[in-house]
């Protein structure tokens, strides 16, 4: 029993990261129906920026907030310069541009900061003795911090989408951009905002997890695959669904990897994809995605 709890907790550590990055993917997708494949690399680059801010002498929390702000602005810039000029219907071109951005950011970070892992200071105590005992397992502060921030961000986004005028404009644009324009909503600005929010959330993820993953140009690559799977599972238009799916995916992956003898660590990634396939066969819009309900 204790071992099971330990494995759930272990899975949760990764699952929270999948969910967090999935949340960023959803912020872009629900507005524009575009998958930003560079989302993970943007987060990685942001983590390096946080490192640079820390290296010039800023306190860690300030460096983290600073990179979130930089990410926020950079997200808007990317949308304005790379995405918007292609037009809203250029789905494949935009997908390719995000792949290009992926490569540029990855190589760029390598050129600037080098290929060796850099140590990133943690926001919370994380020596081997810092943990909370929990049913015989150890809850460490670092993943708890990530989980806590994720819950705060998710709640803030929920309130923004559901209860504010801006959120209403965002949801209207996501559902029917043409009608939104005819209601006087500045659709371009709304889409820009989606990219800004996504990049800001991504920057937060990058800076928060860097202490545990160490800072490398490849730190986000695996997470992006899982995050895309989580967003698909949860339903690409459902922020809460994406987060929950990410967490469940992390736990399921770890449990299956531990208990199914032929999976082990080697096939863990395949497990995530099998789960993805199984869910989509039953529910094509994901677990929490809205079906298009429409009577004509």
């Amino acid at each position: 029993m204790d071992l099971l709890i330990a494995r759930i907790v272990d899975g949760l550590n990764n699952g929270v990261i999948y969910g967090f990055l999935a949340l960023a993917l959803v912020c872009v997708y629900r507005g524009t129906k575009h998958l930003n494949l560079a989302q993970g690399e943007m987060a990685m680059f942001s983590a390096f920026i946080a490192y640079a801010l820390y290296a010039v002498g800023l306190p860690v929390p300030v460096a983290v907030l600073g990179t979130v702000l930089v990410g926020f602005l950079a997200g808007g810039l990317v949308e304005r310069v790379l995405i918007r000029p292609l037009g809203h219907h250029a789905d494949y071109s935009i997908l390719l541009v995000t792949i290009g951005l992926f490569l540029v950011l990855n190589a760029g970070a390598g050129v600037i900061w080098g290929g060796d892992p850099l140590p990133f200071p943690a926001l919370v105590p994380s020596s081997p003795e810092d943990y909370i005992a929990f049913f015989g397992t150890r809850l460490r502060y670092q993943p708890l911090l990530v989980l806590g921030v994720l819950i705060v961000v998710m709640t803030a986004l929920f309130v923004l989408f559901k209860y504010t005028r801006l959120g209403l404009a965002m949801r209207a644009t996501a559902s029917n951009p043409e009608s939104a324009r005819l209601l006087g909503i500045r659709v371009n600005r709304i889409n820009s905002l989606g990219w800004m929010l996504a990049a800001g959330v991504g920057a937060l993820v990058g800076a928060l997890i860097a202490p545990s993953t160490t800072l490398t140009t490849g730190m986000m690559f695996n997470f992006l695959i899982y995050a895309a799977a989580a967003a698909t599972l949860g339903g690409f238009d459902s922020p809460g669904g994406a987060v929950l799916a990410g967490i469940l995916l992390g736990i399921a992956e770890n449990i299956i990897g531990s208990y199914v003898w032929f999976v082990g660590t080697d096939l863990k990634q395949a497990v995530a994809l099998v789960i993805l396939l199984a869910v989509l066969m039953i529910r094509p819009t994901g677990m929490f995605g809205t079906k298009k309900v429409e009577r004509v």
């Binding site: 559902s175 029917n176 309900v293």
Partner: peptide, 25 residues
Amino acid sequence: AQVPQGRGTIVDLTVEENLRAGALV
């Protein structure tokens, strides 16, 4: 203001949210 052809219903919003969206401007 325009009532577009085919009504331009924002199908994922509720009726009231559609009306509130109309008042956003």
